[in-house]
Nucleic acid binder design. Structure first.
Lengths: 115, 115
DNA sequence: TTATTATATTAGCAAGTGGTGATTTATCTA
DNA sequence: TAGATAAATCACCACTTGCTAATATAATAA
């Protein structure tokens, strides 16, 4: 067996810690469906403005999400497909029923609020 | 869109936090290949006896690993297939070259810091 | 201009987490 | 039996993390 190099462990660990927090994980789950602005994420996650903003900043600095300003709003989306994959894998472990359904259902209409 | 129930987020978050620590993640990566005793895991991870034991205890209490005493040794293995899956998914993102069906397009380039 | 709204930043503190070293428990062997 | 070995537990301390409240910044509206 090959042993896993320490730097890969460190990188994976940092990535996991970044998404392990309840608020950040919740944000990412919602962003799986597309771009959302801060106010929408506040509503979706229940986190306070300041708290959510700090979590978003942390994820942005780690390259997990990207943001884009449109007028007064700031819209966030998942920047790195590896994280989308990870969160999707998590979701299919912890919410298998939502994932099967997502495959079967037609494209949800209200989700993508881009443009 | 269905929103993700809070209790699922909490459970997933707890699971992630449990495997996000470098030592615990390293242990789990090694246990993907089968059962190992504490001394072998010490050698493999480089953690101290006390430290490793505490991490193993934590994972055991969370149901992530199980142990079995054989003589003076205690052997550990991954108890929950969901965690094996997760760690395997991580591994194929961060160490694609080590995984049989390497994901060609999944780049481990997570942590680019912006300015 | 001033006021309002959306988001980000800062400071300070409380709580959680992880590491070390000492001790304990259990098993094996001479 | 005593001593050695493997692993677990405990006590303590340092460090990190996350939250709140206050303030700052930036865009828009009146």
């Amino acid at each position: 067996m090959q042993s896993i190099p320490q730097e890969k462990i460190s990188a994976a660990s940092e990535g996991l810690r970044a998404i392990a927090h309840e608020v950040r994980l919740s944000v990412l789950c919602h962003l799986l469906n597309g771009t959302m602005c801060v106010a929408e994420l506040m509503e979706a996650t229940g986190a306070s403005q300041s708290n959510l903003s700090q979590h978003l900043t942390k994820m942005r600095l780690l390259g997990i999400v990207k943001n884009e300003k449109r007028g007064q709003q700031v819209y966030y989306h998942i920047a790195n497909p590896a994280f989308a994959e990870l969160v999707q894998a998590l979701k299919s472990i912890y919410c298998p029923e939502m994932c099967e359904q997502a495959l079967v259902d037609a494209e949800p209409t209200i989700l993508l609020k881009e443009h």
